[in-house]
Each structure stands twice: as C-alpha cells, then as structure tokens.
Amino acid sequence: MSTEAITEEIPGTIIFDGRQAMKGYALNKMCYSFNRAENREAFRRDEEAFMEKFGLNEQQKEAIRRRNVLDLIDTGGNIYYLAKFAGIFGLNVQDVGAQQTGMTVEAFKEMLRKQGE
C-alpha cells in the first residue's frame, strides 16, 4: 500500500487517499456506525465514552467536541462518513459547506445559486 501523499495541490481540497484513510480510520469507523439509530443514541448519551470506544485520538476528539468540519477532515475524516455525524445534529451539506467556508448558510446558498447564472 502506498503511504505517500498525492502531492498535486488542488486549492481548498484534501485528497482522501491511503494516508488520510489510515489517519482517519477510527474517526470514520465511528461515523460509519451512525448508520444505526442505536449508535446515534449512544453517542448522544455519552460522547466521550463513545469516542473512547472507537479509539479516536485527542485531535479527533477535540474536533468532534467542537463540531469543526475542517479539523475533522484534517485529522483524516471522510466527508461521506462525516455527513452521518452532521446528520445527528440535523445539519445538511449546505450547513457543513457554510461552516467550512466561513459563510452564513444563506450566503453559502446564494453562492451556489449564482454559479448557475
């Protein structure tokens, strides 16, 4: 397995490759478990215990506590699994996009709309 980063830079983009997948395995595994209602409920009941069970590292735990999507991605999270985490709080991909770009949700939606003009 290659552990080298895909080096070509695309601005504002982290390529989810083998390196990120290794780094984020525990975090993504926890988020994947949110497919099941009982796991979403267990997380709501005791976040710290749930994160501990999946073996998240301290940076990942802190990113989860702060609900910080950019940090979650930086620590190896993959957006498809993170979407399941966001779903626990009723957040959709516009909410997540707004947070990552530092916009209000309304401004983010307007930015999307404008690209169709």
């Binding site: 504002g12 999507v69 770009t101």
Partner: peptide, 10 residues
C-alpha cells in the same frame, strides 16, 4: 465539492 475550503465549488 462537499469538503474543504473549496466546499460549494460548481
């Protein structure tokens, strides 16, 4: 694009 600072790119 859903992730990263380029989220919202079309």
């Amino acid at each position: 694009q859903l992730d990263g600072k380029r989220a919202g790119f079309i």
